[in-house]
Design a protein around this nucleic acid. Structure first.
Length: 726
RNA sequence: GGGCGCGUAGCUCAGUGGGAGAGCGCUCGCUUCACACGCGAGAGGUCGCUGGUUCGAGCCCAGCCGUGCCCACCA
């Protein structure tokens, strides 16, 4: 599998080392394309080059075999300027006859394609540059750096006015060392290679036959594109750090690979090169577990379950771990020889310009900086929240600030819980592990309790499913929404009523439900914000660490409770919209009568509704100046005889327009015979239901608008500020 | 040149055939007894363009434009 060969490799003259193809960064650089006449008169041929100095090492000129312009010259020789050497003109299919003059100079020692042409035509390989990029060809150029030699060669060629035909600016791809940006120099070299064909085949098959799953599956194509067309891998590196190549050379130059349990023969010397860093990295899945010894760790933990990494490293690292893992563990069963069972690929974090962040480019966000400014959990949560399988994420400080605010929100919600004596012991009917136990009498838990427990159960199932698919961003979003909008904005406010009720049994039950839901929620959030959840959970429960707490496994669905609280939310929102439109201060108490409430499912929630809306009981002299119908409840408000009619009209007209648009859309749809004939029954039914809701809204809103104008409806009030009128 | 994506609100992005969404930003009102790193109410989008399939398209198909990444080549 390992062999040593002469190859043209990418060489970095600054680092003095070979670099692999994938470590070369190509950029379009401005250079000069120089056309040079080789030979004289009818026998001459013009070639073009951007690297004039390499002509010192030319050993042929090549043309395409079918190129009739040059058929008569193939097999003849021309004189190479400056050197006086005579070089042959050969025919090779690699040459593109449409580029330039269709004739190309051949420098086998300094260009990979030319090296191949040289092999095919048995050309001499003439190296004219050393490992420092300094010209070694005898003559006036010897000792010049490659970049000094280029103009020097051109100047020398110009001394004979017939040789240089043209010099023009030319933008072309130039390889640079990915570490130091030095222009790469193709160089003839003797290096060690891995014959990857059998290894790559095995690595591809493991994914093809399903032993290893790649997530998301769209990345399969990327993986196969690599392993199915892999060229041999140059593993020699001329660096100080790294695993040394375990090859020793004898006095006659013979090479032997010496294993870990062997000793090199006396007098032999070890190859000074080290292995490519990815060779060493490819050993990671098993060398960390004690391989090649048959250790307990190796037996227990190989293969690992999931490898999580970014897709850009699929080739560098993942494919190589696959190749080496399968090879080193080839004695095991096929299913056990793979290094991991699932490869979960996430995207790259990008900078504000959409560019991939990298250490060498320096365009990175320093996580320490964010940790200091926004907090460690906020930094982690921001990254987790943006993680979509296989897709890149742009990060911004605004998101980090939002995550910090979320941490703070959790902190304050827990503070409220502790202030109110929330207990993390599960409420009646729920076992310690968090699973619902025996069915319990409805009377034990209020609708609000059952609603938040049902929602908790729902979010647990949702998060479980999303984590299973490595949808970290969506899992974070679900938790964020549950924690902030449902738990803090609605449940916490609703819990204030029973907590302050003075009824110890009611308050106690609420403390338990509150504590239980918060406990479970903190466990769910722990993977994505570990520190703050641990702090809060320990304060809440008195336990040592949430890290060893069981992952929530709580199943409880109560559709009736969810529907009932949904109705409550709509009612409260409707009245809030009215209050806001009327310019009432949030804290301002308004006497109100909730007519017909008792007849609706919301009858039990009067105290909560009044608390959420700052509505006081009607007293003597109660004179409603506005009445609103929502969720079957007529809310009559005493605004001291004043109502901002214009504001209310605007609000009602806005809602009416929306309802009319909805009704119109549904009517048109249901009137379309093609729709009713072909659409599924449930879609048609849904449209009918939407139409009914819209029509009811229209009736309600129209009567409200009419009432605005009638004497018995509302009384216009004087604008609070009349300056603008004058 | 080959391959894979992406184009949805001011910004960053969810949304794989049937009611256009989130966070931030913006507007208005509020220090309401967990939290102003907050609360409540709002404004804002012919879903890149053009065709096609379908009763119905942000979503499926074709072409085009823009944009990003990977691979190869650039004498």
């Amino acid at each position: 599998l390992i062999y040593r060969a002469e190859r043209i490799i990418n060489w970095c003259p600054r680092d003095m080392t070979a670099i692999s193809d994938i470590e070369v960064d190509h950029s379009d650089d401005l250079g000069e394309l120089i056309s040079i006449r080789y030979g004289d008169g009818d026998e001459s041929i013009i070639v073009a080059t951007t690297r004039a100095e390499t002509m010192l090492g030319d050993t042929a000129v090549a043309v395409h075999p079918d190129d009739e312009r040059y058929t008569h010259l193939v097999g003849t020789e021309v004189e190479l300027p400056l050197t006086g050497r005579r070089i042959p003109i050969v025919a090779d299919a690699h040459v593109d006859p449409s580029f330039g003059t269709g004739a190309v100079k051949v420098t086998p020692a300094h260009d990979p394609n030319d090296f191949e042409i040289g092999r095919r035509h048995d050309l001499p390989v003439l190296s004219v540059m050393d490992e420092h990029g300094v010209i070694t060809a005898h003559g006036p150029f010897e000792g010049l750096d490659r970049f000094e030699a280029r103009p020097a060669v051109i100047a020398a060629l110009r001394e004979d006015g017939r040789i240089v035909k043209e010099v023009r600016p030319y933008v072309h791809a130039v390889g640079h060392c990915s570490r130091c940006s030095t222009t790469v120099e193709p160089r003839l070299s003797l290096q060690w290679f891995v014959n990857v064909a059998p290894l790559a085949k095995a690595a591809g098959d493991a994914v093809r036959d399903g032993r290893v799953r790649i997530s998301p599956p769209e990345m399969n194509a990327r993986y196969f594109g690599w392993v199915d067309d892999m060229h041999d891998w140059c593993i020699s590196r001329q660096l100080w750090w790294g695993h040394r190549i375990p090859v020793w050379y004898g006095p006659d130059g013979e090479a032997r690979c010496v294993g870990p349990d062997e000793t090199a023969p006396e007098g032999w010397t070890q190859d000074p090169d080290v292995l490519d860093t990815w060779f060493s990295s490819a050993l990671w899945p098993f060398s960390t577990l004690g391989w090649p010894d048959d250790t307990a760790d190796l037996r227990d933990f190989y293969p690992t379950s999931v490898l999580i990494t970014a897709y850009d490293i699929l080739f560098f690292w993942v494919a190589r771990m696959m190749m080496f893992g399968l090879y080193a563990n080839r004695g095991k069963s096929p299913a056990e020889a793979v290094p991991f069972k699932t490869i979960a690929l996430h995207g790259l974090v990008r900078d504000q310009f959409g560019k991939k962040m990298s250490k060498s480019k320096g365009n990175v966000v320093d996580p320490i900086d964010w940790m200091e400014r926004f907090g460690t959990d906020a930094t982690r949560f921001t990254l987790a929240r943006g993680a979509t399988p296989g897709s890149d994420e742009a990060i911004s400080e605004d998101w980090a600030a939002g995550s910090r605010n979320f941490c703070n929100k959790l902190w304050n919600a827990t503070r409220f819980a502790l202030m109110n004596g929330a207990e993390a012991t599960p409420p009646f009917g729920i076992t310690q592990s968090g699973t619902v136990g025996e069915p319990r009498p409805d009377g034990d838990l209020s609708t609000v309790d059952r609603w938040i427990l049902s929602r908790l159960s729902g979010v647990i199932a949702e998060v479980d499913g999303l984590l299973e698919q490595f949808e970290f961003g969506k899992a974070c979003e679900a938790l964020y929404h549950f924690a902030w909008d449902e738990f803090c904005d609605w449940y916490l406010e609703l819990a204030k009523v029973p907590l302050a009720s003075g009824d110890e049994a009611t308050a106690d039950r609420t403390r338990k439900v509150f504590g239980f839901v918060l406990d479970q929620m903190l466990r769910l959030l722990h993977p994505v914000m570990p520190f703050v959840t641990d702090e809060l959970w320990c304060a809440l429960t008195g336990e040592d660490s949430v890290m060893v707490a069981a992952w929530p496994d709580f199943g409880f669905t109560d559709a009736a409770a969810e529907s009932e609280i949904g109705s409550l939310m709509r009612l409260v929102t409707e009245i809030r919209q009215f209050r806001s439109g009327q310019g009432l201060r949030p804290g301002q108490r308004v006497p109100a009568r909730l007519a017909g409430l008792a007849a609706t499912p919301l009858g039990a929630h009067e105290e909560s509704i009044r608390a959420l809306l700052r509505l006081t009981a009607p007293e003597d002299g109660f004179a409603p100046s506005a009445s609103l119908l929502a969720e079957g409840v007529t809310v009559e408000l005493d605004l001291a005889g004043t109502v901002d009619v214009a504001a209310e009209r605007k609000r009602l007209e806005r809602d009416l327009a929306a309802a009319q648009k909805e009704a119109q859309s549904m009517t048109a749809k249901l009137g379309n015979e093609a729709f009713t004939a072909k659409a599924p029954a449930e879609v048609i039914e849904k449209s009918r239901a939407r139409l009914a809701v819209a029509e009811a809204d229209i009736t309600r809103l129209e009567s409200r608008l009419a009432a605005l104008l009638s004497p018995g409806g509302v009384t216009p009030r004087t604008p609070r500020c009349s300056c603008w009128q004058s």
